[in-house]
């Protein structure tokens, strides 16, 4: 039953990804010209003489003289074989460029998610079980500030005070001295030293949102009759809360996994630029600006793939956790 369900979901992923790839390809190709024309225009604007014959050669080399449909097919065929293409700007395969930054991105994002959960869970539960208390109001207020302040502003403020109070160097995830060093214990400690700033900044909004969502969900569940039943059995309040309403309100966390996976990889672009983090976010933005089409396209495709996988994981987890989804199957018509 469950295996068939998973198979079915995996099969549905194929058309989803195909449509996504077509969309990405179309959108990236929509602006006039391509990377080489942008490059030539930039060089001319800077007064340099562009080697038109070389550009023509490159265009031919990368198949830009072919019709878009053919380029699309080639690109997708490459992706299927794990070839993400070649970045014109960096003159290196896309896989290498992204790979370099992926580790740092994942560290930042993962730490952010853990931070979000650790903070949001207790506060959400407290707010729901102490509805309309001063604690609830106070925490809600702080959460709303976190939600309302723009990330880049928070980033600037934090950078300033981190430097003044803790002497942490501005920008980046490591002290400049470790920048091109291989990973070592000292470098790792330096990363940890810097990590908390982006984690708090990126996590602020998400934490506030999650507190609100958890509070609302839990409040709904606390009204339910089965919670009264559980307490009528004589369960201690904490255990009754954990086993019944909290479990039910978890469903939305799990359906959230689908969004979490891609955000782990993409990194928060704007914050990363302000803090000049060596994550993938700024890379993607730069690639989109310069029409570095294989870098941008393949990276977006990678994110889409992770989204689809994330949704699959959350669907399977939901089916495991909630017997109503597992056993009732398709809705009756």
């Amino acid at each position: 039953m469950l295996i068939r369900y998973i198979l079915k979901r995996i099969l549905i992923m194929i058309p989803t990804l195909l449509v996504t790839s077509a969309l990405i390809f179309t959108v990236i190709n929509l602006p006039e010209g391509d990377y080489f024309e942008t490059l030539a225009a930039e060089m001319q604007a800077q007064g340099e003489k562009a080697d038109m014959s070389r550009i023509e050669f490159l265009k031919k080399e990368y198949g830009f003289d072919r019709p878009p449909v053919e380029r699309y097919v080639r690109w997708v065929a490459g992706l299927l074989q794990g070839d993400m293409g070649y970045s014109f700007e960096y003159q290196r395969p896309v896989r290498e460029i992204v790979g370099d930054r992926l580790l740092l991105t994942m560290i930042v994002s993962f730490a952010t998610i853990v931070f979000t959960w650790i903070v949001a869970f207790p506060i959400g539960i407290y707010s729901a079980t102490h509805q309309y208390s001063w604690g609830d109001y106070g925490l809600t207020f702080i959460g709303l500030i976190g939600l309302a302040v723009p990330h880049f502003l928070l980033a600037l403020v934090f950078m300033y005070f981190a430097n003044i109070w803790f002497g942490t160097s501005i920008g980046g995830l490591v002290d400049p001295q470790y920048l091109n060093q291989p990973m070592s214990w000292a470098k790792f400690r330096s990363v940890l030293e810097h990590l908390w700033i982006p984690v708090i900044i990126i996590g602020a909004g998400g934490t506030a949102g999650m507190i609100r969502a958890l509070r609302a969900n839990l409040l709904d569940e606390l009204q339910k009759q089965y919670y009264v039943t559980a307490r009528a059995k004589g369960l201690p309040p904490g255990k009754a809360l954990r086993k019944y309403p909290l479990r039910m309100s978890l469903n939305f966390f799990i359906s959230d996994i689908g969004d979490i996976l891609p955000s782990i990889v993409s990194g928060a672009e704007v914050v990363a630029i302000v803090l000049s983090l060596q994550t993938t976010g700024p890379l993607l933005i730069r690639a989109l600006q310069s029409q570095d089409m294989y870098l941008a396209g393949s990276f977006l495709m990678f994110l889409s793939f992770l989204t689809v996988i994330g949704v699959l994981i959350s669907d399977i987890a939901l089916a495991l956790l909630d017997p109503r989804i597992r056993l009732q199957g398709a809705p009756t018509k």
Binding site: K224, Q225, Y226, V228, T229, A230, R231, A232, K233, G234, L235, P236, P237, K243, Y244, R247, M248, L321, D322, P323, R324
Partner: peptide, 28 residues
């Protein structure tokens, strides 16, 4: 929420409710 009442609840005093639909947890 003390121990005294919790021993009675469910142990010495049982209770059933109007809505059999919603008084049982759907996920256990």
């Amino acid at each position: 929420e003390g121990e005294g009442i919790r021993d009675l609840r469910g142990g010495r005093i049982g209770m059933i409710f109007q809505e059999p639909m919603s008084s049982l947890s759907p996920v256990h």
